[in-house]
Write a protein that binds this DNA or RNA. Sequence first.
DNA 1: CCCTGATTCGC
DNA 2: GCGAATCAGG
Length: 222
Amino acid sequence: MSWTDERIETLKTMWEAGQTASQIAEALGGVSRNAVIGKAHRLGLQARPSPVKPNEPEVKEQPVAAAPPEPAPPPPPAPAEPAPVREVVREAAPEPVRETAPAPEPVRDPQPVLRSVGPGGFVRQSPGEQQPPSTPAPPRRLVPAKPNADMAGKTTLLDLNDRICKWPLGHPGEPDFHFCGQKVNPGFPYCVQHCGHAYQAQLPRRDRRPPPPLPFGGPRVR
DNA sequence: CCCTGATTCGC
DNA sequence: GCGAATCAGG
């Protein structure tokens, strides 16, 4: 697989939309998660929350052993780039002693990757502030806290549950963005109709239509 | 273990 | 340029 313009465009869109590298790789097909990350970096799209803390550039204490006999400090106009030399020093595990630490919280909500949206687009949540998608929506009448004519009768993010088709209509951030809301095809996240869009038999390349359906609406033309 | 992104480096 | 291997944190 090569990085065609379409695939690069999809990569950019999904990456900026906050999709994980794994999801992007799966959507693209034929590439690994690493390939996606590598390509994203080569494209210059880094800057996004990494689970790994970029260790604060430690002020390396320069052991001023002997007074430098060189009174001439002529550093060329070099930008202050703290040479990120990674030490490959492996420490041997010293303590065979184990402390019995109770492993808490196996709570992992397998909820789909629907992140909250805002007028500007996606808003990434930190795990601490994630909330389950409300209660399984008892069949009672919902009164919008903020009566909005546009959203009347629309299925919003908060209306989603296991039984509701999560097929997005419109684009996140747009005023009338909502979800299909039909009863799902049991075992799938979408209704029967949208399952037809989401799951398609692989066709021979020559009579396959170019636009591959992306679950979140696909790349947007800017 | 699983996941995540970042980085390196041989190709 | 590409991406597997590796690293490092959650």
